[in-house]
């Protein structure tokens, strides 16, 4: 990610230090991860010490300090999804992508993570891809959904 793009995100928030988290979220969503260079740029522009930025980006799970795939897959492992077969959905995704929760594939296509509740238990088992919710997943449907992502 080049400085120009980072600066644009910073400018959108008027370069205010109080918008630090918003700026970081902006970079995260555009770039899928936060490279060290980006953190340094944000630190200089917003005049926030790097130590503080590091504390924040390691605190919240929404931030990633390693490259993430173009598509982020979240499988809900909450109680309701669990009893409705979330493990089978997870197994299917692992088989198809070859990655485990917390990992990213070599082509940077998918990142996989489990979550503990997405708040729509009636739809369980739930899989979320890039923020879009796919409910009542069976292994076959899971495979069908993943095919749509390039």
């Amino acid at each position: 990610m080049d400085n120009h793009k980072i600066d644009k995100i910073i400018d959108k928030h008027n370069g205010e230090a109080s918008s630090l988290i918003q700026v970081l979220l902006g970079i995260q969503s555009e770039n899928h991860w936060l490279p060290n260079e980006a953190l340094k740029r944000v630190s200089e522009k917003l005049r926030v010490p790097l130590t503080r930025i590091q504390h924040i980006v390691t605190f919240y799970k929404a931030f990633s300090l390693v490259p993430k795939g173009r598509h982020e897959v979240h499988i809900c492992m909450g109680t309701a999804c669990h009893v409705r077969g979330a493990t089978r959905v997870l197994d299917t995704v692992q088989d198809l992508t070859g990655i485990k929760p917390g990992e990213t594939d070599l082509d940077l296509k998918f990142s996989l993570d489990t979550v503990n509740c997405l708040g729509c238990c009636a739809l369980g088992p739930v899989m979320e891809v890039d923020g879009k919710t796919h409910g009542k997943m069976s292994p076959v449907q899971t495979a069908d959904v993943l095919k749509n992502y390039k």
């Binding site: 010490p49 790097l50 130590t51 503080r52 590091q54 504390h55 390691t58 605190f59």
Partner: peptide, 18 residues
Amino acid sequence: KNAVGFVDRGINKEISFI
């Protein structure tokens, strides 16, 4: 100088130098 700070949280929290 902010040369050292905390990273991570909970039981994984630790100090880290820049």
